[in-house]
Design a protein around this nucleic acid. Structure first.
Lengths: 205, 205
DNA sequence: TGATACACCTAACACCGTTAGAAAATAACC
DNA sequence: GGTTATTTTCTAACGGTGTTAGGTGTATCA
C-alpha cells in the first residue's frame, strides 16, 4: 500500500511506468507499420494481420491498443491534420503580403500532400477504406492560417468561410483528381495551374 | 453450316439469340443489383456474394459475365460518365450566353452528382473500393460541352485545358469534401458557394 | 436416341476483421 | 525463494470476403 502511494519513484523500479512506455511503443509501432505498408502496398492492401506480422506480434495484440482497424486510421488522420497544420503555420510565419502568402500556403499544402500521400489519402478517404467520417473541425482547424490570410485580403467575416471553402475545394479537387489517376498531365504543370487558379481567385475577391 | 449462315432468322427459333439475350439480362441484372446494394448499404458493403443472392444466382455465375469485381465497377463507371455527359449536353443545348451557361452546367453537374451519388462515388473512387484507375479520357470526354463553353469565354486554346481542369477541381472539390463528411454546412448553401466561385472564376478569365 | 455443349452449382482456397479462451510470462506477496 | 495473482500474448475459431476448379444436370444438335 505505502509503496503504491510513493510520489517519487526515482531510486526503485517503477514497473507501471516501464509498462506504459512499452505499451506506447507498441502503439507507435502499429501506426508506423501501417504507414509503411500503405506506402508500399497501398491502403486497400493493408490488413491487421500484415501490420501484426510487421511489428512481430499476433493480430489480437493490436486490439489491446486500438478498438478496431478504423481506430488506427482515425489516429493517423488526426496526426495528418496536425502535421499539415504545422506545415502551413511554418509558411504563414514568414509573413509577407496576403496574396503571395496565400500562394505559398497553397504550394506548401500541395507539396505536403504528395510528400505524405499516405496520410493525405487517409485524411480525405482517397484510396478507399474508412467507414466513419472524420470530425469536420479537423479540416477547418488545420487551415486556420489560411483563414487568417483570407481575412487579410477581405474583411467581411460572413464571406470568409465561403472563400476558405472554395480554397479547399480548389486545392483538394486538384490533388484528388490527380491522385486518383483521373487526369494524366504532368504534376508540376498541374501545380502551376492550381497556383494560377488560386491567384485569380484571390484577386477576384 | 447452312443454318448458321442464315441471315433472316425470323420464322424459326434462333436459340443463340435467345441465349445472348438471356446472357445480357444477367449482366444487366448484376449491374442493377450492384447499384441497388450500394445505395442501400454503401459501396464498401457490396460483395459478389450479396450481388449473386440479389439476382438469385450463385457467385460463380457472375464471373461468366465479368472478369472480376473490379470489372463491374469499371462498367458502372463508364455508364456514369456517359450519363453525366448526356446530362450536361442537355443543358448545353439550351444555349444562352457562355457565363450563365457555365453556371447552368455547374449546377446540373452538382445536382446529378447527388442524385446518382452511387455512380459518382464509383466514378471518382469516393467511397472506397477500386484498385485500378479509370481512363483519363472519360473525364474530359464527359465534360466536352464545358470545354466548348469555356472556349466561348476565352479563345486561347492553350489555356482552355487549364480552365477546364480548374472547373473540374472546383466542382469535384466541393462535392467530395461534402460527400466524405469533411464539411458540415447545408448542401444548398454549398451549392450556392460553388456557383459563386465558378462565376468569379469565369469572369476572371 | 446418343453425343456434345453449355449453364449452373457445390466445395474449396486463401485471405480478411474480430473475439473467446488457453497458455505463458511477469509481478506481488508471504 | 516459492506461491499466488495479474497481465500479456498466443492459438483457434467464427463469419465474412474474392475467386477458381471440378462435377452435375439440362438443352441443343446430329
Amino acid at each position: 500500500m505505502a509503496k503504491k502511494d510513493r510520489v517519487h519513484p526515482t531510486e526503485d523500479f517503477n514497473h507501471k511506468e516501464r509498462r506504459e512506455r512499452e505499451k506506447a511503443a507498441v502503439k507507435a509501432a502499429t501506426l508506423k507499420a501501417s504507414r509503411d505498408l500503405a506506402r508500399q502496398l497501398g491502403w486497400p492492401n493493408v490488413s491487421i494481420r500484415k501490420i501484426a506480422k510487421e511489428i512481430q506480434y499476433t493480430p489480437p495484440v493490436i486490439y489491446q491498443h486500438f478498438k478496431n482497424k478504423e481506430a488506427i486510421l482515425m489516429e493517423l488522420e488526426i496526426q495528418g491534420f496536425a502535421k499539415l497544420k504545422r506545415e502551413l503555420q511554418t509558411v504563414a510565419e514568414k509573413g509577407g503580403d496576403p496574396i503571395p502568402k496565400l500562394l505559398n500556403l497553397t504550394g506548401a499544402a500541395w507539396d505536403w500532400a504528395f510528400k505524405e500521400s499516405d496520410l493525405y489519402q487517409v485524411m480525405f478517404n482517397l484510396d478507399s477504406i474508412h467507414a466513419a467520417s472524420p470530425d469536420p473541425r479537423s479540416l477547418s482547424d488545420s487551415a486556420s492560417v489560411v483563414l487568417d490570410t483570407l481575412k487579410e485580403i477581405h474583411l467581411f467575416d460572413s464571406e470568409v468561410d465561403e472563400y476558405l471553402f472554395t480554397w479547399w475545394a480548389l486545392l483538394h479537387g486538384y490533388i484528388s483528381l490527380i491522385m486518383s489517376g483521373q487526369v494524366s498531365g504532368k504534376r508540376s504543370k498541374m501545380r502551376q495551374f492550381l497556383l494560377e487558379a488560386v491567384e485569380r481567385f484571390a484577386k477576384s475577391i
